[in-house]
Design a protein around this nucleic acid. Sequence first.
DNA 1: GTCGATTACGTATTACGTAACAATT
DNA 2: AATTGTTACGTAATACGTAATCGAC
Lengths: 290, 290
Amino acid sequence: MIETYLLEQFSAFARCGTLLKASEELHITQPTLSRSMRKLEEKLGVSLFHRENSKLSLNETGKVAAEYAEKVLTANQDMIDHVLAYDRSLRTVSIGSCSPFPINELMPAFQDFLSEKTILTELSDSDERLLTGLKNHQYDLVVLHTLPADRSFFCQRYMEEQIYISIAKDHPIASLDTVTFEQLRGIRIMVSGNIGFWMEICKRHLEESDLLVQSNNDALTDLVEASTLPFFNSDRMIELGYDAPDRKSIPIRDDDAHATYWVVCRVTDQKKYRSIFNAVRSYAFRHNEK
Amino acid sequence: MIETYLLEQFSAFARCGTLLKASEELHITQPTLSRSMRKLEEKLGVSLFHRENSKLSLNETGKVAAEYAEKVLTANQDMIDHVLAYDRSLRTVSIGSCSPFPINELMPAFQDFLSEKTILTELSDSDERLLTGLKNHQYDLVVLHTLPADRSFFCQRYMEEQIYISIAKDHPIASLDTVTFEQLRGIRIMVSGNIGFWMEICKRHLEESDLLVQSNNDALTDLVEASTLPFFNSDRMIELGYDAPDRKSIPIRDDDAHATYWVVCRVTDQKKYRSIFNAVRSYAFRHNEK
DNA sequence: GTCGATTACGTATTACGTAACAATT
DNA sequence: AATTGTTACGTAATACGTAATCGAC
């Protein structure tokens, strides 16, 4: 077997063409490289270079050897990458969600029951992408707004969320008890940029030009206070106090404005996340009682 | 990058299960292995083992690492194997032939013009197999008894060979000037085992049970002298003095009993073997003159 | 007591750098 | 003169072995 450092030095020479350039790239001296190249030849028992006129170059065998050396080195680097990634994956729980609110609500439970692990959360606007991610171990837990048919997933019903329009009290619409997306068409409405699948819903029912998307949440809060423009809200957000005093929040009665969230994992991991699912279940129970 | 010796030691431990057995396999001491395993963990920056009760075993990450280590090591060994094989191939000329006689005749030319190379000759009973071997660099030169249609080969007509039956002078057939395979059916005939495609010809035209195949050439010579059984001969063999005084050699007039040999190489190698083909051509010219 | 792993210490190997030299361009 | 590769020599790093220690079965 050939030691890795010899292959690294050989590969560097093959790329750079001269020992000098290779030695600069590797931050070692030429004599070291010169000796290493001889050593590699000795180890293999074959000649790898043309040596003439203080000019060193690969011969036919050397070119073949360089190709294979590259393979060995990438295999080595691959090992490092994969082992580190695997080790990381053991200490990390990746959670994907179609919407930001369930994640916020679940965070305390995650921190309780996965205290020794790193928690990594990610928003996605597509249930489908979340499920494929769950399947190929990109995620360990996902929160969906649709119930997957696949039996290889374990699903627990979690919570409901209802979208509201928060609109100035003197606006004609403020007199209504409920509205439809249809009634909101043509009105400019502010909306946060990080709302997962809700953005798709909004774009489907309203003109895209009417949506004032604001990715920065602080900026959105400022805008709400500084303007009288309506904005999208939800029962969950209102519960948390995200409301504006001079506005009225009116529920949107379209089916699409209501979501039921499901917490999902691979059936093989069902036991692993048992305590989390218990917390989810009791949360769902408490809220169904109301 | 991880040095190869660390991966070798790690792999040995993964196979053997204990440091002691691994150390015996590698002919090093346990302390060395113990230190190396720690070093590997340090280099990767992750834990690879369960250490408890003077018992060392791979943890989950360690098992993954062992798989990848194996890949790196096989890539390393692959490199060595292929580089050595390639280097060998540069100093070797592999010659395949459908018949022994052309090789014997060409040997002096090979030794003249490939003096710095190792010459490797091989008999094959199938032109087809010789051609595929030539295509995939198993052979560099082949001698065929059929002219290949493929334009990616360069072909040079070489020599003729005519099969004779050498039969006791008092045998009825000995009175004939020529014979056919048909006339020889039912007669037990001795034949050498190493005659390439000729064996196929004999089996096609004669009962297999009538052929007394003798793989050892010396034994065949002895048998020829000690018995009066007929045997197959050829004009080329007769020229070289391979004959028996108390027998008569009669040419077989079937088409199959006559062969025209072609020396063939890949067109890409045509120049490389130019001097050999010159020798072949002049040999063919001399013999056509006769 | 045996087996397996680790620690501590000393040694031998060897990979590397410095300096000088050789050979081209 | 500048560039590139090699040789010679000394040094620092390190891989290894020996001996002793600890724990468990």
